[in-house]
């Protein structure tokens, strides 16, 4: 069964106003469990918009989204959020760590509303940081972390709720080659663990990597071509 099904997704910004803009038109797509898929395309082609709809962060103007077979487009916000936080982990281009608190606190932040005790949350957070070789920086304020360390904190944060799908938007845009390769290595481990990974990227280092299973080419809000690794 497909993990996620998009059915005729259209996203129109500012509908009915002079600056109306169609960012996605009639996109249909299925994403199977396990594997790494990359959306690539020129700037403005709708990659971020598509990822935010797949990740249940935004609602489409038309069309349906099914997550694990459940129709989610008409769900109220609180249910959508619940599905989102248990299904998806996000890594943002700008990382978006909360400044002024420690790396560990940043990692466990998404799990606060789950009602898990802080002690056990911390324990899990430290374990995740340890896997990424960052346990010694757990109590450091995030401002003091290097770019690569911050990147790994963001990865750990995406994993704290044990999501099935990890979504990353332009994850390597701000990294040099070495850090980008480190990042891809971390993703390879996740893939080996059986997670599904979705990227938007126009970095060849990402979409030409051997671990990529599927590349979806986007242009003007549509998927125009698809290449699968054999």
């Amino acid at each position: 069964m497909s993990l996620i099904v998009l059915n005729g997704i259209t996203k129109i910004f500012n509908r009915g106003r002079p600056d109306e803009f169609t960012a996605l038109s009639d996109v249909s797509l299925e994403i199977e469990p396990r594997g790494l898929a990359v959306f690539r395309g020129p700037s403005g082609s709708g990659k971020t918009t598509l990822l935010s709809i797949v990740g249940c962060m935004a609602k489409p103007s038309a069309g349906r989204v099914l997550v694990k077979g459940r129709e989610v487009t008409s769900l109220p916000d609180r249910f959508l959020t619940d599905i989102r936080r248990h299904t998806f982990g996000f890594i943002f281009q700008q990382l978006h760590l909360v400044r002024g608190i420690s790396a560990l606190e940043n990692v466990i932040l998404p799990a606060y509303p789950s009602g898990e005790g802080l002690a056990s949350l911390r324990e899990r957070g430290v374990r995740l940081l340890d896997l990424l070789g960052l346990a010694h920086r757990a109590d450091t304020n995030v401002e003091w972390l290097s770019g690569g360390e911050a990147q790994r904190v963001a990865i750990a944060r995406a994993l704290i709720n044990e999501p099935a799908i990890v979504i990353a938007d332009e994850p390597t845009a701000h990294l040099d080659t070495k850090l980008s390769l480190d990042f891809m290595a971390a993703m390879e481990r996740l893939k080996a663990e059986g997670k599904t990974i979705l990227f938007a990227s126009h970095d060849p280092l990402v979409y030409e990597s051997t671990m990529v299973d599927r590349v979806l080419e986007m242009r003007d809000g549509r998927i125009v071509a698809e290449r699968r690794a054999s």
Binding site: R15, K59, P60, S61, A62, T73, S74, P76, D77
Partner: peptide
């Protein structure tokens, strides 16, 4: 109108 994904419905939900 819960079925509609329109902007105004999203605002109402908020």
């Amino acid at each position: 109108d819960l079925r509609s994904g329109s902007e105004s419905q999203l605002q109402l939900e908020k």
